[in-house]
Design a protein around this nucleic acid. Sequence first.
DNA 1: TGTTGTGAATCTCTTCACAGCT
DNA 2: AGCTGTGAAGAGATTCACAACA
Lengths: 214, 214
Amino acid sequence: MTTSMTASGPLPYKTIGRLSQYRRLLGLRLAMGQRNVYSHELAAFAGVTAAQVRRDLMIVGAKGSPTKGYDVHALIECLGGVLDDPAGQRAALVGIGNLGRALLTYFHGRRPKLSIVAAFDVDAAKTDRVICGCRCYTMDKLAEVVVAEKITVGILTVPASEAQHVAAELEAAGVSGLLNFAPQPLRVGPHTYAEDLDMTMTLERVAYFARRNR
Amino acid sequence: MTTSMTASGPLPYKTIGRLSQYRRLLGLRLAMGQRNVYSHELAAFAGVTAAQVRRDLMIVGAKGSPTKGYDVHALIECLGGVLDDPAGQRAALVGIGNLGRALLTYFHGRRPKLSIVAAFDVDAAKTDRVICGCRCYTMDKLAEVVVAEKITVGILTVPASEAQHVAAELEAAGVSGLLNFAPQPLRVGPHTYAEDLDMTMTLERVAYFARRNR
DNA sequence: TGTTGTGAATCTCTTCACAGCT
DNA sequence: AGCTGTGAAGAGATTCACAACA
């Protein structure tokens, strides 16, 4: 009752984010022994409309039934087929500060198909050991480890002044996706995907709409 | 050469985020002694088009000149008039883990009009002292401190299982904006603005587009 | 010439609304 | 009766393109 092997072009940006959220709820429902789920249930969980959920699932080719909704197990498989690389993807984190450690801890052993397998820092006191289940190296090992571990995703938790420079190093080493937490938008080549997650900007936006909304 | 006292309705969501980025570059340029700036310079910094920058600045009523571009000082004032509450806004952080500490450290003394003035945690070992320049309290003091300190923004860095419950407490205490780092979208009332910043979701999206983009 | 300010066109995303199914 | 799947409409955000200006 699911899948469909149409590879097609990349899915919409927003849809990909929501699929990740739907998958989380599906995991919970599976653990609770629920076999099926309706679009309005996924919608309530993700904070979107039921029509939005059905549209997203239509885009990925998932099929439901008017009486039973969507089959939880089949839907998890379907979303995995979209979100996960069958061969798995490995990520490296650069910058082992509080934020870096939070991410290492949070992702450790959580997603089998997407794991952080190496961390880097300029500070020798933090490297050449295992932190939060992840091997830590000095920066001069970066290119070598990225190649050896087949790392394709880089996570930047470095100061703003270092971000662009580190991004270029990761890109040169063969990484094709970057998630940047530094408050400095990255400039990358056309074959690299970079997303900036600027917490200062987000907090200022929350503060703005908190005032306007009241 | 700037401002304009039209209060009007709330500005577009995306625009607000970019204004925050423009302001950061403007601060750097001011420190470097530059008196003016062109839309294409702001654009290159923020990773958007020059037309986008001009559109954003038009929306907030900033004025430039064809020969000199925009006056840096006047533009900072103008953006401050939009982004900042004249009376200042105070935020509380709930959940003093690695992520919470990263945020406390990063925001400490950075924005005069938006500061984190209190932190909360269930763990008594982390409370009743100052961490990263911020006073830490036990959870049972939450409502009391929110009222006493006139806190209007809440930042959630708690486990997913606690997020909705903590959000409701903050909302009940009078907070009108929430920034949620837990991987669990918040449900809030119509007078509260909540934004979810889900790092797992974002990393999965980066991984997806990293594969597709290569 | 090179820039701003902006209407119009375009693109992307969301919601509506309803046929079709069980 | 209540749900899915989806064309069509709508809303929101971006880019185009060019007049006006210094």
